[in-house]
């Protein structure tokens, strides 16, 4: 089951990017997803911070998996995650103070991102470090990609710009609603709908063939 072959590592690495994408397929960690994707820059900062925390804590949890007693495992994971979040929080504050200010409490809220705790409980605590690392990198990348998709679309539609660079010239009337809170829900709803359509399309030819 937990034999570390190159094929297995590759499979764990790629599954998070598309097939089990944390946001589009598993619909986990939605609070930061919706709250910070009103611009591309915020989405990148959030994605990088989450990636760092996920990879760091998965590796540590996997290394310590035989030492953590079952009864207190959730609290242990939370404390490990909180430590990494404190690191990421301070690093962002020092490196990009403007973005840190805009994201506000949401960097600290990575602690309670259910995606991270979910990966510790479901994967890192049961698998050797290399597999846990591959899984975390895959999931983290999938999360970043999803944030970028949402952030990109919302910024392009809602502000007519990408990374602050204006795209359509002065005549474009921005869809202000897309950068406001309702836009987040509507956008994610639209993306989930798109995924449902894609999945149905994929299934139909197979049913005909069978």
């Amino acid at each position: 089951m937990s034999a570390t072959t190159p094929e297995r590592v590759y499979a764990e690495l790629t599954k998070g990017i598309w097939r089990e994408n944390p946001i589009f397929v598993q619909v986990l960690g939605m609070c930061p997803t919706l709250a910070v994707t009103n611009s591309v820059m915020n989405a990148i900062a959030m994605g990088v911070a989450t990636f760092f925390v996920l990879v760091g804590s998965s590796l540590l949890v996997s290394l310590l998996r035989r030492l953590i007693p079952r009864e207190v495992r959730i609290s242990t994971y939370i404390i490990i995650i909180a430590t990494f979040v404190t690191l990421a929080d301070s690093a962002l504050e020092a490196l990009v103070p403007a973005v840190h200010k805009e994201l506000g409490a949401f960097i600290a809220l990575i602690v309670v991102n259910c995606l991270i705790l979910g990966r510790q409980e479901a994967f890192a605590s049961r698998n050797p470090p290399l597999l846990a690392l591959a899984d975390a990198i895959g999931m983290g990348l999938g999360f970043c990609i999803a944030l970028l998709c949402l952030g990109g679309t919302r910024e392009i539609l809602g502000a007519g710009s990408f990374l602050g660079v204006s795209l359509f010239g002065p005549n474009f009337e921005p869809w202000v609603i897309m950068v406001l809170p309702p836009g987040g829900f509507l956008m994610l709803g639209a993306v989930l709908l798109l995924f449902a359509v894609l999945r149905q399309r994929k299934r139909r030819p197979k049913e005909v063939g069978a």
């Binding site: 619909v27 809170p181 309702p182 829900f185 709803g189 989930l192 709908l193 449902a196 359509v197």
Partner: peptide, 21 residues
């Protein structure tokens, strides 16, 4: 049928959020 589940909930939440604005 295609909207059932999470997608329709997202749209409902979007409209609610719109109302709260």
């Amino acid at each position: 049928a295609i909207l059932k589940g999470t997608a329709i909930n997202m749209f409902i939440a979007g409209v609610l959020s719109l109302a709260f604005m």
